[in-house]
Design a protein around this nucleic acid. Structure first.
Lengths: 197, 197
DNA sequence: GGCTTAACCTAGGAGCCCTAGGTTTGACCT
DNA sequence: AGGTCAAACCTAGGGCTCCTAGGTTAAGCC
């Protein structure tokens, strides 16, 4: 039988696809190997361990998500940018639930591997840049970044976990929450006057 | 050898303790059995499966967390109640990280078991009650509940995952975010005038 | 004491992670 | 074209996990 042409990237991608289909917790070495038509032992030439594989999936997801967001907010500012950011964030989580949950694992990733991945670092830069229009100064700016990340992450994960059982359509709560978030940023507590539309 | 006097509750508690010590993903039938001085097969008389055990831990955690919050907000209202609620929420997550992560798992819990546990249902009631002082009407009220839950859950999980690497002390960001959240509730977008202090 | 129930056991199958060491393949070099 | 070498891929197997089936033992009740 011919060989599959495996590589760390291909293994990671197979794992990511599997994660989206069956959930990250069911991503196993054997399952990935089966999907690639290969024995599980063969994967260890490309990936150190299952945990390493999960870390690579997380890094891949971070990169993809960052790119999505960057495209979405390009050329926008203020409220426009916030909405684009949030919607890109949420739609990525919807389309790639397994990859997204991979990003929440406490990062015990190979440091040199993490250093090579631009995703996480760039994501932070994007968020700071997106908030620039609200004219916040440090340390308020960092607090605001954390509020935005917490709100989006929290909403998306609660939604995925089925935490919103009420009759009210989730979609409308989502836009309401974004409006409220925008208002928070505009009238940040420790600040005097308003900010852009 | 004498018998251990196992019961579903004791097994669940052992699992919860283990989860807080080593992380929920390392809570295994064998590990719980070892901790109880019993063979793993013996646990299946009390708990249907590993997933069932995880669900029971989640329910236990939901109950405990709800009680904590209820005690914290008793006799308070408005901003006072919001702060007490949030701090109780976060401190529970800090003290019981394993139990807390159990609450985020997509609930495939035995329905009749879930029906017997008052935690989740009561938690919702508490949150709605806590927000009463902000005088929001449906559907804004539900949206606000969702915003509060998302913000708290998001902040706490990002914090636990080591997502706040910046120099800014997390504690101060936390109070900032709560101030912002309070302001959001006070000036909810679709509403005219302000609300209580 | 006998009976019932439940608590706890041993034995074992199947699947998973990962290591050690062997074989084959493809690409490059002369 | 034939030789070389590193990589890709394999088989074999140990140890751990979840879970089932069926047997034994203790506790409570008449």
């Amino acid at each position: 039988m011919g060989r599959a042409g495996l590589t760390a990237e291909r293994v990671t991608l197979a794992g990511a696809e599997l994660a989206d289909e069956v959930g990250l917790e069911h991503v196993t070495m054997s399952a990935v190997a089966r999907r690639l038509g290969v024995k599980d032992a063969s994967l260890y030439a490309h990936v150190r361990s299952l945990e390493d594989l999960r870390g690579r999936i997380a890094l891949l997801a971070a990169d993809e998500k960052t790119i999505r967001i960057a495209e979405a907010i390009a050329g926008r500012a203020g409220k426009d940018a916030l909405m684009a950011y949030a919607n890109a964030y949420r739609s990525y989580a919807h389309e790639h639930p397994g990859r997204y949950t991979a990003t929440q694992i406490p990062m015990r990733i190979d440091p040199e591997l993490a250093a090579a991945a631009p995703g996480p670092r760039r994501a932070v830069e994007l968020t700071y840049g997106m908030l620039r229009a609200y004219k916040l100064d440090e340390p308020d700016l960092t607090d605001a970044v954390r509020l935005v990340r917490a709100t989006l992450h929290g909403f998306v994960t609660l939604e995925a976990a089925g935490g919103f059982a009420h009759a009210r359509p989730v979609e409308e709560s989502w836009t309401s929450c974004l409006e409220a978030l925008h208002a928070s940023l505009q009238h940040w507590p420790s600040r005097r006057e308003g900010a852009p539309s």
